[in-house]
Design a protein around this nucleic acid. Structure first.
Length: 105
DNA sequence: AAATTGACGGTTA
DNA sequence: GTAACCGCCAATT
């Protein structure tokens, strides 16, 4: 079966992220589960970290389940703010409002 | 082969 | 509400 390095996995991952609606965010674990690899949230993050820039994928809509943003990425908060995502005082996304659930839409 | 690291998750304090 | 701890998997050193 396909490994995490395989193109098939990445393709599936891209497809999931591409489906994230405007102003919504998804956690790594949720993305991993939708891609068919539950419990692999960490590996998903690793894969996203190796994403080529030319894909123009809304990877900024993928955040930590706790609402924490991506470390070492200064633009993350800005991009989400532009989409109307609310933040708490400590700089975390309000997952309660913006977490994309398959139930809605 | 063993230990370390990393864009994580959920529970507990 | 935030902060810390332990558990999880895969890739790298």
């Amino acid at each position: 079966m396909a490994c995490f390095q395989s193109q098939e996995f990445k393709q599936h991952l891209y497809q999931v992220i591409e489906q994230i609606p405007y102003g919504k965010v998804l956690s790594y674990g949720q993305v991993a589960a939708l891609a068919g690899w539950p419990q692999h949230a960490r590996a998903v993050g690793k894969t996203l970290s190796q994403l080529p820039t030319h894909l123009s994928l809304p990877c900024h809509r993928v955040v930590h389940a706790n609402g924490a943003l991506v470390p070492h990425w200064t633009q993350h908060r800005i991009l989400l703010e532009k989409e109307g995502v609310s933040f708490t005082a400590t700089g975390r996304v309000e997952m309660k409002k913006h977490r994309w659930q398959l139930n809605e839409q």
